[in-house]
């Protein structure tokens, strides 16, 4: 069994064995490594952080050091079965354009992001009058890389506008567990949202 973080495990479970995967913002390559070992996928990770390049090599992952804000022009249309982006959507300059790029180079997109409407974050802002911080959003306001935070409702609204069809949604509460009453008030109870989608 893999020791993947629960959110990454959900993503991994959605990926068909032997498919081709592009991981945007692949970090140290943990997810791709797991996918390569347990699901025999092939593909690449894109990562901007220099320290992570060596970690990816150590994990046996093909990694390309690049800035996602430059787009995915290195890749031809329809190159991948899945384009995955975990906890990165909120940190890119144009998330809406990147979603289009994901569905240009891949058939199915998978994203995870911190839900900004999570009740704890609302509490931070509404009651304490402070910029919200949480497990998934652990930065102070002045040094956060997360420049485009959104909520579950925001994301689904954008997908609707863009004619992106959501195939599946999973949510995790603050301790990265599935909420006890799944599907009830996700926008309030989910700390992390996980989506699988394709062009409508």
């Amino acid at each position: 069994m893999s020791g993947l973080r629960p959110d990454l495990q959900i993503v991994a479970d959605w990926i068909t064995p032997r498919s081709r995967v592009l991981d945007l913002g692949c970090g140290d390559g943990t997810l791709l490594r797991e996918l390569q070992e347990s699901r025999f996928v092939t593909g690449y990770g894109l990562e901007i952080d220099a320290d992570n390049i060596g970690r990816c090599i150590r994990n046996g992952v093909n990694v390309i050091q690049t800035d996602l804000d430059q787009g995915l022009s290195d890749f031809a249309a329809g190159t991948f079965d899945y384009v995955v982006m975990t906890q990165t959507l909120q940190a890119v300059r144009r998330p809406n354009r990147l979603l289009d790029e994901m569905l240009r180079v891949g058939r199915i997109g998978i994203v995870t992001f911190p839900n900004f409407a999570f009740w704890r974050l609302r509490y931070h802002l509404a009651m304490l009058g402070r910029m919200p911080m949480s497990g998934a959003l652990s930065y102070t306001w002045y040094e956060t890389p997360n420049i485009h935070l959104c909520t579950i409702r925001d994301f689904e609204e954008l997908c609707l506008q863009k004619d992106i069809r959501i195939l599946e949604r999973e949510v995790l509460s603050h301790d990265l567990r599935r909420p006890v009453i799944a599907g009830v008030l996700p926008n309030l109870l989910a700390e992390i949202a996980i989506y699988r989608f394709r062009r409508g």
């Binding site: 081709r20 092939t42 690449y44 390049i53 990816c56 090599i57 093909n62 990694v63 390309i64 050091q65 690049t66 290195d74 890749f75 031809a76 190159t79």
Partner: peptide
């Protein structure tokens, strides 16, 4: 990348 080769950059 176009040719699906193994590459790290």
């Amino acid at each position: 990348l176009d040719g699906n080769k193994d590459v790290t950059y």
